[in-house]
């Protein structure tokens, strides 16, 4: 059926497979992990991968596989929350910008420029430095920087829809503006937004790993891939597996969602077909 078109796209299929594995891993970790991710074991510190510990153990003897699994939950929550913040506020602002007249448009778009003007990581460091390092603040910081991304995309897409005949037709049929936006504009601009969301989802995971690596994101002992990389750094030569596996998890997830986004774009954007 219609889904066949999706699976013919290699990017989409591979992306979907990779990201599904991450999601499944995260879901499983909610109910079961080989070991408790935060339980230390002094007898098994810095052990290389073995049958008992497939991904080895860290300097406290914690099981790396369990920590990578729980870290996936962390990353997915970060991706979801930041995209929700950015997309939610961005859509509202973008639609206001496209529909609300010149003044609102200028104000919102110049504000977006301002946000865009700062390097995102620098500003995220600023926000977490001011509000205190925590997973929630890291998500807020990343989410806020997504707002202009989605606001611009929403505005641009809404403006192209705004000039189309069926919007005039809806007006001529006496529909209220809010109803026109909800029923005629939003559903028609959804596909670029969804594509953007999958891409930003991947970027957020990377950004959160970066912040956690710097100690500004998820706080110990809660496992986060970025944090694990940071801790592994000291033992790089002694125990490379401590860095390799969380690093692979990050690369895997980001690649998965990026491919998914690319694939969706190819499929949903008729101009590229």
């Amino acid at each position: 059926m219609a889904m066949g078109r999706y699976f013919k796209n290699l990017n989409f299929s591979i992306g979907l497979a990779l990201s599904t594995m991450v999601v499944v891993m995260a879901l499983v970790s909610l109910f079961w992990t080989p070991y408790s991710p935060n339980t230390m074991d002094a007898h098994h510190r810095i052990e290389a991968p073995s049958l008992a510990h497939p991904l080895g153990t860290d300097q406290y003897g914690r099981d790396q596989l369990s920590r990578v699994m729980v870290g996936a939950v962390n990353s997915i929550i970060v991706g979801l929350m930041t995209v929700a913040i950015g997309m939610g506020a961005g859509i509202v602002l973008g639609l206001t910008s496209a529909w609300g007249g010149r003044l609102a448009d200028e104000a919102i778009m110049r504000f977006s420029d301002l946000l865009f003007g700062f390097p995102a990581v620098l500003s995220a460091i600023l926000i977490t430095a001011v509000m205190g390092p925590s997973a929630v603040n890291a998500m807020l910081a990343i989410g806020i920087f997504y707002i202009p991304v989605f606001a611009r995309l929403t505005r641009a897409s809404a403006l192209t829809i705004k000039g189309l005949d069926y919007i005039s037709a809806a007006r001529a049929a006496g529909q209220e503006e809010v109803a026109i936006i909800r029923r005629h504009v939003l559903p028609n601009i959804l596909s670029p937004l969804i594509i953007q969301a999958t891409v930003q989802f991947a970027v957020a995971i990377l950004a959160e790993a970066g912040l956690s690596y710097l100690g500004l994101g998820t706080q110990p002992p809660h496992p986060s891939w970025g944090r694990m990389l940071n801790e592994a750094q000291t033992f790089m030569e002694l125990a490379p597996w401590m860095a390799v596996f969380p690093g692979m998890a990050i690369a895997w997830t980001v690649l998965g969602f990026n491919l998914l986004g690319d694939g969706l774009r190819d499929i949903l954007d008729p101009r590229l077909r």
């Binding site: 005949d165 005039s168 037709a169 029923r183 559903p187 028609n188």
Partner: peptide, 10 residues
Amino acid sequence: FQEPMTALNP
């Protein structure tokens, strides 16, 4: 409207 192709929401 003139254009039946574009006057309906797809």
